[in-house]
Design a protein around this nucleic acid. Structure first.
Lengths: 198, 198, 198, 198
DNA sequence: CATGAATGAGCATTCATTCAT
DNA sequence: CATGAATGAATGCTCATTCAT
């Protein structure tokens, strides 16, 4: 949406696109090396700036982390929301959500890594905000699993932890060239749906 | 166990127990704050030493990380091996392994966090060694799942990723006071074995 | 007085009143935190400007310091001149000058702190100008003390240093709520006039 | 005393004389340029060190300021105490104290400037300690003036402020080559004792 | 007149590491 | 085995200042 074709080409406000560039660079480096192993100089250099200049756009390194986190959360959440909006049976909607989650995790890896790896303490003063974002996102899976028609002895709490953990852990093993997110999601959900015991 | 009572009590328990102390401190701090957010001074202070003195016991901070990783891997691997050695059906052995894995993850959290969180690059020159340790450990689950009698359409590869990911992700949500590792393992395996579809 | 009603009320009061605002803000902050501990951003923010905009009104931070100093000097000097102009005996005129000096130091604290605390070097290129202003002001007390009828053994040089130093040091201990400047001046001059030895 | 000839030349403990060197350099630079205008690099360079190395000896720049302040206060206080200990009439003791105060202000200018110029806020967390030191020192003059036999109408409070302020202000005008501290003290006290009114 | 964006030097501080003792 | 003292590079951040718009 931010990169949509401007409807008024003659008066492009260019609205702070250096900030966006910086955020991209920060997201990429945080994702690749980790927050602490990335320096403000690294980020600045990546966009051809001096480190001091970043502070015109961001208050601190921690604020950059929060901004990356927020953007990452927004992207996955939007993807999942859109996928679920298509309707279908509860199982179909869960599978669609899983596929969307995985797809976003991969497509926006730079941003979503922050959601996967950031410790609350690393965000310093923004720790609380981060926790809120995390909870807001997870709510989606909580609801999708609540909607599932399940045998009464199944513990929905652990079903969610099992599925959500497995999906997130994909960041450790997923590599482009392997199966598509859709295939992975289908396999995971299939394994859950069917009986494994012969 | 590694600090069992020395058989020669009169002759001081020598054998470099400062190294063990240092490793404990490092493991604890790495686990709690992360590798980069922990300084050699922090580790040294935790055992009442000066930071320079660490270098008598370890070559570098990275070597400490590797040592923590190795010890962590040893502890989980031993626990899983012992659990599996008790025998039983393939499903029973898998469940026992999962319980042991979780139990070790929790009991030796300081050490096992390294296995969960360390990025290959953080270990610098020791990156390769770390990858080997990881693979050696994962082999256990690969085998346990191979031994499982499964319907032919089930993809064992994804079953392993699903289960192993979910188990490891427990580090994010597990807190003492909740269900025991044994219960969690049983719930997870149960969800997989049975059909969820009603 | 500098902001007296413009003689041409129909034609907006133009004449750079943002400069005056900036000067006030600078004086206040220099006085409260010191020159080096005050940033151009601080000053700009205090008047709702961006730091770069200051440079339309002032050439540099040092020029601001000089301007504050000059304004401070002007205010104390005017006050003392007015007080002395009322005439009276040499002792009465000295006391009136002391009261006026103290009154101005307190009433225009923001500006006069600069006179009390500025080191010549801090003013950089303007150091000479600052020395001139200082000397021009002190001349007043030099003359007032010259006019005093004194016993021949009294060293007028040290009398001036004694009195002037004591007056200026008041900036360290004076607080609103204590005696008025007039009372302080009277006490100081009284102590000097009378014999203390019983 | 710290530079006294070591009584045991064969085993000189050299007890942290780099800290003393650093303190000397800091005192000198703070005195000459002011606290904020002096950088840690400046101080380090003055003793042939790198700026980071200072932190082995001091926790922070503010701690250095406090240390300078404390040492300055100790030196003036000791000088005044020794001068007063010689006894004599109250007026003689006051004059001796003034001379000692001035002498110390001049001889240990680097250190005593801190007492004259430091604002409480500059010392950050150590502000309270600085206030205590200041009060402990001033107590001496409070007592000396209490001991003075004075006509009942004289306000001892203002006598102290007058004299103490004048003495401290000497830092602004005193230059080597002028009268000795003893002469200045005698002149000041003389002016106070005698009646100026003819 | 003022802003938005940046510069480049500098800041206090922290770090892993070294090494003589 | 460990310390005391230092190194030198790097870190996050702030600063006065500039200048096109």
């Amino acid at each position: 949406m931010p990169a949509g074709p401007s409807p008024t080409p003659l008066r492009a406000p260019r609205q702070d696109n250096r900030r966006a560039q910086l955020l991209d660079a920060a997201a990429h480096l945080f994702s690749e090396r980790g927050f602490h192993a990335t320096s403000m100089r690294d980020i600045a250099k990546a966009v051809g700036m001096l480190s001091g200049s970043i502070y015109y756009h961001f208050e601190s390194k921690e604020e950059m982390l929060l901004a990356v986190y927020e953007e990452g959360k927004r992207r996955v959440a939007d993807a999942v929301d859109a996928a679920v909006a298509h309707g279908g049976s509860p199982w179909e909607r869960l599978e669609a959500a899983c596929a969307a989650h995985l797809r976003a995790l991969i497509a926006h890896r730079d941003y979503t890594q922050a959601m996967i790896r950031t410790r609350q303490q690393e965000a310093g003063a923004y720790g609380t905000r981060i926790r809120e974002l995390r909870q807001d996102y997870e709510m989606r899976f909580r609801r999708l699993i609540e909607d599932l028609p399940l045998p009464p002895e199944i513990d929905r709490h652990y079903l969610r932890l099992l599925l959500f953990g497995a999906l997130n852990w994909s960041q450790v093993w997923y590599h482009s060239g392997g199966d598509s997110p859709e295939v992975v999601a289908r396999r995971f959900v299939d394994i859950l749906r069917r009986p494994l015991e012969v």
